[in-house]
Each structure stands twice: as structure tokens, then as C-alpha cells.
């Protein structure tokens, strides 16, 4: 039995896991004003905004560091004041599969950046662009739309709901296998 090559393969596979948490804390300095066009399709309930050319969406969605930063900022910026830990209150619930303005991370980014009618304020220039992407990625994790390998796990203190990586997978939810 030659174990050498096998071990090498395992080592390479293990290294691949490192990217899960790659941290870029020093982004291009940009305020909440990415190159996305301003939201003009706000009156399209359920409508999807056109896919943006921004490559950040994919990067942020599968990155454990950005997701957990999004979770921290969700608390820090008092999103729970209206969305109540995702359960909804004054603002809509974020832990279900109903999306008023589309479920893509670009749509959520646009919602946070530009606001939406009837209450959602605009955080343009108030939150740096990368942090908006982090928040948007976390909002998707709240309803099981983030990869389980990257979604935040157990909180350090009391948890209002099961941790995000234990939520049922949104893609297969309610469908028979």
C-alpha cells in the first residue's frame, strides 16, 4: 500500500478548506455606492433586479468570515429594531422564503443601500459598501440560503433561533427528495 499519494491528496483537499474563511479586512475604500445602477424597479413586487456585474456577490455569499461579520453588523446596526432577529415586526420577516424585492444578494444589497418604500431607510453613505454586502449575505443566511459550510454557527450568548448553519436548506425546503 502506498500511502504517500493518498496523504498528499488529503492534504490538498484540506488546504481547499482554508478559503472558506479568507479575510479581506482592507477592501477598496468605497462608501455604500457600488457601481450598480440606482434602484428604479422598486415597484416590482417579487421582481428580480438585473444581475449586477459586481463580483463581490459570489465572494461574500460563500465566505464564513463575511457571513459572521454580517451577523455582527446586523446586531450592531440594530436591524432587529424592525426585523426582530429575522422574525419580523415593524419590518418584514427575513427568515421565511417570501421576498418582496427578490431573493438575490444583489437585490438585498440594493434594499439596504437605497431603501424601500414604507419604512426601509437608505443606508447609502452610512455603511461602507463591503459591509452592505456582508449584511446582505447574512440576510440570505437567515432563511437557509447560504452554504451550510459557511453560515454562522452557535452564538456566544442566548440565541433567538437555531444557528444559521442548522437551518433547513432553502433550495430543498418543502420539496420531496
Amino acid at each position: 500500500m502506498k500511502r504517500g499519494p493518498l496523504l498528499l491528496v488529503f492534504a490538498i483537499l484540506a488546504v481547499a478548506g482554508c478559503q472558506r474563511e479568507e479575510r479581506d479586512t482592507r477592501p477598496q475604500s468605497a462608501l455604500g455606492s457600488g457601481d450598480q445602477p440606482a434602484a428604479v424597479t422598486a415597484l416590482e413586487p417579487g421582481g428580480q433586479r438585473p444581475a449586477s456585474s459586481d463580483t463581490k456577490a459570489g465572494v461574500f455569499e460563500a465566505n464564513a468570515f463575511h457571513l459572521s461579520e454580517g451577523k455582527r453588523l446586523f446586531n450592531w446596526f440594530n436591524c432587529s429594531g424592525c426585523h426582530a432577529n429575522g422574525g419580523g415586526g415593524m419590518g418584514p420577516a427575513l427568515m421565511d422564503q417570501k421576498w418582496l424585492y427578490g431573493s438575490s444578494i444583489e437585490s438585498i444589497h440594493a434594499t439596504i443601500r437605497d431603501g424601500r418604500p414604507n419604512g426601509m431607510p437608505s443606508f447609502r453613505d452610512k455603511i461602507p459598501d463591503d459591509q452592505i454586502w456582508e449584511l446582505a449575505a447574512f440576510v440570505r443566511a437567515l432563511s437557509g440560503n447560504a452554504p451550510k459550510s459557511a453560515a454562522p454557527s452557535r452564538d456566544d450568548d442566548m440565541m433567538p433561533h437555531p444557528s444559521e448553519n442548522r437551518l433547513p436548506d432553502a433550495a430543498t425546503l418543502g420539496k420531496s427528495p
Binding site: 479575510r23 479586512t25 482592507r26 477592501p27 475604500s29 468605497a30 462608501l31 455582527r72 461602507p128 459598501d129 463591503d130 459591509q131
Partner: peptide
């Protein structure tokens, strides 16, 4: 650059 990882972000 001064305190990598600190929660103070780079603001544009």
C-alpha cells in the same frame, strides 16, 4: 493597516 482585523472599517 494599523490594527488589522479591528472592527473599525475602511470608510471611503
Amino acid at each position: 493597516g494599523i490594527k488589522p482585523g479591528a472592527h473599525m472599517p475602511v470608510v471611503g
